[in-house]
């Protein structure tokens, strides 16, 4: 199978891995995270969607850092900050979810309707 794929590449049918591959993957992760945020009823499920979106952004940053020499440093620094900030945000979000659970004894986001008009 390996010789077959090598032949396909050398004939130009499969392009070598470039920036676009990573960008499409990051877009896919972003969309999965968005669907997760919209469709989950569990508050921690929504948080997992947020983590997916942040990871997609980090992959984007590092892909640009790799394929564009101008952003070699910035891409990694931004991705590092994204990772650290995402961890901090997850901690706060979980604290809020735990607080919510103390009050309502459930984590169903449909129960968060105190401010509903």
């Amino acid at each position: 199978m390996i010789p077959l794929l090598a032949e396909a590449t050398s004939s130009g049918w499969i392009t070598p891995i470039g920036l676009h591959h990573y960008l499409f993957l990051a877009a896919f992760l972003l969309v999965c995270g968005l669907v997760c945020m919209m469709a989950k009823r569990n508050a921690i499920g929504v948080l997992m969607g947020v983590e997916l979106v942040l990871n997609a952004a980090a992959i984007n940053f590092v892909a640009f850092a790799r394929y564009n020499r101008t952003f070699e440093l910035e891409g990694q620094i931004f991705a590092l900050f994204v990772i650290v900030m995402a961890a901090a945000e997850a901690a706060v979000a979980l604290a809020i979810v735990l607080s919510f659970y103390h009050q309502h004894h459930t984590v169903d986001v449909d129960n968060a309707r105190e401010l509903k008009g």
Partner: peptide, 27 residues
């Protein structure tokens, strides 16, 4: 980006995911 990969594993997998799982189990 080797440093970032190791940092991702350390912070996310070793930290954030443990936090999320604890949150899941406590709620």
């Amino acid at each position: 980006a080797e440093f970032l990969g190791a940092a991702q594993l350390l912070i996310y997998v070793g930290g954030t995911m443990v936090l999320v799982i604890f949150g899941v189990m406590l709620t």
